[in-house]
Every structure is written in structure tokens, then in C-alpha cells.
Design a protein around this nucleic acid. Sequence first.
DNA 1: GCCAGACTATTAACATGTTAAGTAATATTG
DNA 2: CAATATTACTTAACATGTTAATAGTCTGGC
Lengths: 154, 154
Amino acid sequence: MSHGNDAGVPMRDFSRSLPMALLRAREAVMDRFRPSLRDFGVTEQQWRVLRALYDRGEVETGTLARLCCLLTPSLSRILKHLEATGLVARRPAPSDQRRTLVAIAPAGRALLERRAPYSEAQYRAIEEAFGKERTAALYETLEDLHNALQNPKS
Amino acid sequence: MSHGNDAGVPMRDFSRSLPMALLRAREAVMDRFRPSLRDFGVTEQQWRVLRALYDRGEVETGTLARLCCLLTPSLSRILKHLEATGLVARRPAPSDQRRTLVAIAPAGRALLERRAPYSEAQYRAIEEAFGKERTAALYETLEDLHNALQNPKS
DNA sequence: GCCAGACTATTAACATGTTAAGTAATATTG
DNA sequence: CAATATTACTTAACATGTTAATAGTCTGGC
């Protein structure tokens, strides 16, 4: 029984909000990872940056932002912090002075490798709780959704 | 070809990060809703609060936080803003002076009803692009994931 | 070589995310 | 019923999300 809000304005139930459903699911997942992030003194976003740099080597700031799903103003502040604490290194691109190249520093690599086992353990726990094949299928579905909504301008 | 980072520290590829996959999908969805949110001068979170109050009537702050997937410190600031702009109203609960009851105000209801058609149009576009049945299945999957990861303490 | 326009990164301003600490009201215990 | 613990909300501090504006840098036409 609603509160009389169903007169004249057709509107789906709040429980059928796709952004909310994705957010709730993501929060449930992140709850598993936050304890060890806190223990190692890095935020979720700082971890994403270190993680991307570990895999990709030296990359441009713009590329790094896309990889980490961060906006460039956020990344700018995050890199300032990570550079100040010695976890990453920045240098101007030789061929284009507008661009900046970023790489993980030894201290960053060391931190990442220390936390990795805790992260992997949580992935195993999640796949056990939800099902390995169902988890794999979810990756596919989420990527398909992303591709389906991609603006044609890209 | 990795960058020599595969020696000794077993770690999944960054592309198989569940938080990242959920975030990317959510951002793709939100990109469809942000233009009209901006046009109506409300943030995503402010909209969630108005949306929940519209459906549920007067609720306690704590309940509202759970409904909107917001932490109470964030909600506290959001409600201060929404109350100052006349979109919601707060009053202490008669039975327990610690609790606060929140309800949508007429101006909030009016704003919500003006934007609702734009929001519904985007939902139709998303369901058309991704498939109505696949969208419904995704809701189910996300809820199952949430339930599977729910800590037993809850 | 010069210049208007495009591109890359940063800064600014305001709102929220996250954790810890604080405040007031209620519930509990001895 | 008084001392204590618990609960609900807020405030504080720092980090990020989001949009707009800024500061260098590069490119193509002239």
C-alpha cells in the first residue's frame, strides 16, 4: 500500500532502481575488502591506482583515470598524495610536455604485494558464497551492460 | 604480456575486480541520469532521499539511511541542506527524543514529480538497450549477491 | 614564425564517503 | 533510583566525487 503517491505520476518502485541495486551490491562486496584496506592505510581509490600501475607499468594520467574509473580531478589529488608518500613516481612525457607519466614506486609495489594475499582470500570467499560460475557470469553481464549503454560518441 | 609482476605473488588480473566491474556498470547507468539531475539542481544522493521519502512517507533518520544506502554522517549533512531549501521537514519522534522523523515537503514532492518523467524515460531507454528480461534478471542477481555476502551478524 | 583553437593536467568550490569522537536521550543494572 | 551502558544522531577531519575555470602545451593553417 503506497501513501497516495500513485496518482498521475507513473513511477517505478524505488526498489527497482538500477543505480541503487548496483550500489547495494557493490557495498556488500566492498565490506569484505575495507578491513584490510584500512589495516594497510590505503583508501579504495589509492588501491585501484596502485593496482592498475602494477599491471600496466608506466602510463599517462588520462589513461590511468580511465583504467581506475576516476575523474581526473580526483586522480590529480590522489597522485599528489601517493607521490608525497613515495608510493608512485611522476615525470613529464618526453614527447609531449602536457602529458604526465606515472609509475608505481618500489614502496608502492611492496605495499601491494603485502596486501594482495588478503585481497585474494576475500575473492575466494566471495566466489564460494556466491558461486564461481555465477560470479563469472555476473562479470559478463556487467560488461555487456556497460557496452550496451556506451554512448555512440565514444 | 605482463610486466614481470607475476613472480611469487598470485593475483588476479585487474579487469577481474568485482568492485571495479560493479562501479563501471553503475557509472554507465548514472551517465544517463546525471543530465536531468543537474538540470533540476539536485545531487544523486539528494534525489535518493526524496525518492525514498516519497514512497515511504515519514521515516526515522536511521531507516532512511539504510533505504538510501547512505552513511548517517552523510545523511545528516544532506538533510540539513534539504531542510534549508524546504524540500524535506524534520521533527523529533514523540516517543523517543533521540530519534528524528523525516518527511518530504510539498516543494520536494513537486520537484520529484517534475523530474520523474525524465527518469522514467531513461529507464525505458536502458531496458531497450540491454533487454527488459536481462535487466530484470540482473536485479535478481544483484540482490542474490547482496544476500549471499550479508554478514551473519546482521 | 605566428596565432587561434584544441588538448592535458591542475586547481577551485561545493557535496559526499569514511572513520572517529562527541552529545543527548533512553535503557539497564545493581 | 543512581550509576552505567547503549542508542540515535551529529560534528569533525580528511579523502574523494562532480562540475567549472585555469594554466601550460601542442597543432594546423597562414
